[in-house]
Design a protein around this nucleic acid. Sequence first.
DNA 1: ACGATATATTGATGATTGTCAATATGATTT
DNA 2: AAATCATATTGACAATCATCAATATATCGT
Lengths: 102, 102
Amino acid sequence: MDTNQVSLICKALSDPNRLRIIQLLTYGEQCGCELLDQMQITQPTLSHHMKALEGCGLVSSRKKGKWNHYSLNCDQWTAFRDYIESIRCACISDEKGGCCCS
Amino acid sequence: MDTNQVSLICKALSDPNRLRIIQLLTYGEQCGCELLDQMQITQPTLSHHMKALEGCGLVSSRKKGKWNHYSLNCDQWTAFRDYIESIRCACISDEKGGCCCS
DNA sequence: ACGATATATTGATGATTGTCAATATGATTT
DNA sequence: AAATCATATTGACAATCATCAATATATCGT
């Protein structure tokens, strides 16, 4: 995953509502109305946020009948998580002589 | 670290230039002019970005004479990294029966 | 066919953002 | 004191964003 892609994902996560949605989806797939029940926003706003989360590849949607089921895109999230994890600060811990971020 | 703080950090990282600055600072403390040499932005823009990165607590600055030395705030970065790492998707891998994100 | 439900789109608005040129501040050197 | 260098601030502008009300689309149950 390259820098621009990471920035796009960070932009998607820069809204507390969207970060909350991601966390809700870690419990598994949910439809829009379920997500809506757990949040304090209107339905068009939720739709807008879901589009943003889909746009950066973090969320996938699966339409079944009336419902649209959203789920966290595991591969994309893992790639993002790995990227963030790979950034480590260079400071030295006094205690063990290693990096304090280890 | 709470959700709002994470969102603020994500917003700070949602600009590719700022993400790049964070990566440059993983090599250790650098002054503004050093950072500027490695980027394609003007000095006021760099100053603006550094303020944003300081504002969310990711970067600390230390003034010494003419120079302002910036460094990655290890504790804050680690807390952010841990938060992101703690978000795991619930999908099940077919291969080993565990979570594919492990 | 009709009403109800889930979701998407449109249009509008106020707020925030990234960027630069111009200028200011503050420290060092000559 | 004057010139130089590193950085910060101001002011401006175009672009993007989060949000909602209103409306549209699509699917299900009756």
